[in-house]
Amino acid sequence: MSENDLTSSNVLSEAELAFEGALRPSSLSEFVGQPKVRGQLELLLKAASMQNRTPDHILLAGPPGLGKTTLAMIVAHESGQPLRMSSGPAIQHAGDLAAVLSSLVPGEVLFIDEIHRMARSAEEMLYLAMEDFRIDIMVGKGAGATSVPLDLAPFTLVGATTRSGLLPNPLRDRFGFTAHLEFYDDDDLAKVIERAAPMLDFSLDGEGIAEIAGRCRGTPRIANRLLRRVRDYSLVHGTAGDVTAVREALRLYDVDELGLDRLDRAVMNTILTRFGGGPVGLSTLAVSVGEEGETIESVVEPFLVRIGLLTRTPRGRMATQLAYRHFGIASAQESLPLDTL
């Protein structure tokens, strides 16, 4: 690769990073959607500012891609404090958490993504840290071991989780505010796309925006991803940013009219054809489609249930009549002769 090619590649990489950063709003006033959560957070942060104290600990719960990380960044920005970012899977020992907590500066915002995946020993250490801004460190081993208290700087913990039910009650109860993020409606998604398109130097008409908004599963992250794919399609094929280009691009990337992608259709086709519409257990379904059960449960199922293609029963997952109609498959009931019904 020539020096010019390397320079061009670096410029493109920096442009993409700049785009990613610009997509994230820096204040609650710029944040699109979630009006109830925005109002609650605004009140919480203003009250803390008026009393010159650190804001209460905040738990952000909801499906992936709805803005939990962005809201954590906004909490730090609106509070005028630095942000420290970590994740549950990265904190597998109490010592890992102690190292992070002991290095925090007064007022700092600590963001822990997927907080439900922290090690149990770290969770128990976090209880005391959240309540009293103190941790106990064990020094030595065996009968000679002693507990040494270590005071911490006051901080605000922002935890994000896609599985709030997996959080222990003692940890959940220590959060002063819990925000439940909901899927976005098409109007709010259209605003997200309208804001992002000029950053990509891409002109998209109203019908094209509405078409993308209707196919992105109520999720801003998916809206921005589909927008980039449509931009790429228009750039390569020299087409305008209209609804025709949007449909052709999304057809190429296997996103149908309801927003179902390859994995969604694999799950539904497996339930409909291989298991006669269900019920089928999660582990059996995961093996059948070659995907992790957690991915199906946390990424695929919420959307399929929300749009009425799938139901969850005590015996397993079942397809609805709407699913049969969408995929053009006759249900067992519909295929019975009239004289047997």
Rank of each mutant, 00 (worst) to 15 (best):
G21Q: 15
F202R: 15
E20K: 10
D96G: 06
S103V: 05
A145E: 15
I112R: 13
L157N: 09
R262Q: 05
R317F: 01
T270I: 02
D187E: 15
E108L: 08
A266R: 00
K46T: 14
L181H: 09
E257Q: 06
L252R: 04
L110R: 05
I296D: 00
R217T: 00
L181I: 09
L28S: 13
R317W: 00
V287P: 05
L23K: 11
V300L: 00
R306V: 00
K68Q: 06
R24A: 09
V305R: 00
L83D: 06
V192G: 05
L43Q: 08
P168I: 14
E14R: 06
A330T: 11
T320A: 00
S86N: 07
M1I: 09
E194D: 14
T7F: 06
P55K: 08
R53S: 10
N269T: 04
V158N: 12
P198R: 14
R247H: 08
S8T: 11
M268I: 02
A249I: 02
N4E: 15
M199R: 12
R229K: 11
Y127G: 03
A160E: 05
G140Y: 12
V287D: 15
Y324K: 03
L41W: 09
G67S: 05
L263H: 02
R228E: 15
L59S: 14
S298I: 03
P337R: 08
S49G: 13
T70L: 07
S234H: 09
R217H: 00
L157T: 07
T311P: 00
E257D: 11
I74H: 05
R251V: 06
I329E: 06
H237R: 11
S2K: 03
L17S: 12
G238H: 07
T156Y: 12
A129W: 14
M138W: 13
R225T: 15
L17K: 15
L60V: 04
R312W: 01
D188W: 04
L189Q: 07
K68Y: 05
L204T: 13
D56C: 06
A98F: 13
S103W: 13
G176Y: 02
V267C: 00
E114P: 03
H77D: 11
I271W: 01
G176Q: 03
D187A: 13
G176K: 04
L272R: 01
N269D: 04
G159W: 03
G176V: 04
S86D: 09
I222A: 05
D187V: 13
G281A: 07
N224V: 08
P302F: 01
R120E: 10
S87G: 07
N269L: 04
A145I: 11
E248M: 12
L83C: 07
M138Y: 13
L272D: 03
S331Y: 02
E42Y: 02
P337A: 09
I137H: 10
T311C: 00
Q51W: 06
D173M: 12
I137K: 14
I91L: 08
L260W: 00
P168W: 10
S8G: 07
Q81P: 05
S103E: 12
T313E: 04
L338K: 09
M318I: 02
L97M: 14
S29E: 14
V289H: 01
T340G: 04
S147Q: 11
M118A: 10
T244K: 10
E131N: 15
S298D: 01
P82N: 14
T162H: 02
V139G: 07
D173A: 08
G140P: 07
P337Q: 07
